[in-house]
């Protein structure tokens, strides 16, 4: 046993080290890029769609960049936590964020101050349109069947897919508006996500689910869910039989998207290096096969186009969310 005096001395030394580290190492130093492992922040949990896309690309980028690329999940707050962590990281290219559609929504809801201007986009890698899905045992065979029924019985049927004011809720409102209906024709039941919403629909608790078609892929293949339409500009490769809303005369498209970005202020040459690596990864056979097999849509927008895309998305979301009354 040591005396109290000795123990206190140990404590004092430990505290000194803590203090010194505060003073001497405010941030990490660096050399030629990249010379150490890169971290990708995924603002959603392990195993979800965003996580899967990030992990596939991370393994491909690793070969391209020659340094380890690690995926780190910072889930929570509907993406706010991860996006904030990513935007406030050191702008040195060693912390990349997988940005998602939520980036264009959260700041309107007042959840965070972070918006697209806090990031320098590397590129957009994926786009999944929203869809209109119903239970396979429901009477609606086509989108027209469903729309007529909704028109004839406003407020009788219910839709779900996410929490109130989140992306699939916005998709529903945009769809109804474009078809000349109102929010109240097909009210929203908030749920925690695709799994819960689809389970509710199978069990008869809700009637329509507006999540991306990839989230329902397993159940569509199992014959328990029927997709009636997708809210994209073109049909989805994995489901070529499902028409778009535009084909049906409803001018509306919305989807969730994913991309990579670094904090604003990252050196341009670092962004160029990353852009080239991501571009190669996105074009690889492994990526294309994976995305098609799982039902994700591929969209590649390089840095410049991505910047413009982000601004457009931000505006669309802002307009709709203000109209829905969910924006602050």
């Amino acid at each position: 046993m040591l005396s109290t005096g000795k123990r206190l001395r140990g404590l004092a030394i430990v505290s000194m080290i803590a203090l010194l580290s505060l003073v001497l190492f405010p941030a990490a130093a660096q050399a030629a890029y990249p010379d150490r492992p890169i971290t990708i922040i995924v603002p959603f949990g392990a195993g979800g769609g965003t996580d899967q896309v990030a992990r596939v690309l991370a393994s491909l980028m690793q070969d391209e960049l020659g340094v380890p690329v690690n995926v780190v999940n910072r889930a929570g707050g509907g993406g706010a936590v991860g996006h904030t962590a990513g935007a406030t990281a050191a702008p040195d290219g060693y912390t990349i964020t997988m940005i998602t559609a939520e980036l264009a929504m959260m700041h309107w809801m007042g959840l965070t101050n972070i918006d697209y201007t806090d990031f320098e986009p590397i590129g957009i890698v994926n786009m999944d349109p929203a869809s209109v899905m119903v239970a396979a045992n429901s009477p609606w065979q086509t989108l027209e069947d469903l729309m007529e029924d909704i028109k004839a019985n406003p407020g009788k049927y219910r839709a779900s897919g996410t929490g109130t004011g989140a992306i699939w809720d916005v998709a529903r409102v945009g769809w109804l508006n474009a078809a000349g209906l109102t929010d109240g024709h097909l009210p929203w039941i908030p749920s925690t996500g695709a799994a819960q919403a689809l389970q509710e629909m199978i069990a008869g608790g809700v009637h329509v689910v507006t999540n991306s078609i990839s989230e329902g892929a397993a159940m569509i293949h199992a014959g328990t869910v029927r997709p009636l339409a997708v809210m994209g500009d073109e049909r989805v490769v994995a489901f070529p039989d499902v028409p778009t809303l535009k084909e049906k005369g409803i001018d509306w498209s919305l989807g969730t998207w994913r991309g990579f970005a670094v904090p604003a202020g990252t050196p341009a040459d670092v962004v160029k290096t990353l852009e080239a690596a991501v571009a190669k990864a996105v074009a690889s056979d492994q990526y294309v096969t994976f995305m098609n097999d799982v039902g994700f849509g591929i969209l590649w927008l390089p840095s410049d186009e991505a910047r413009q895309f982000l601004a457009e998305q931000d505006e669309i979301m802002g307009t709709l969310m203000k109209q829905m009354g969910v924006a602050k």
Binding site: K6, R7, G10, L11, I17, A18, S21, L22, F25, P26
Partner: peptide, 22 residues
Amino acid sequence: IVAPRLGFVVGGFVLVAGMLLI
């Protein structure tokens, strides 16, 4: 305080060594 600045190895060492001494 220490780990994010000096890394896990230093932070963990300080923690465990300090606790063991105490």
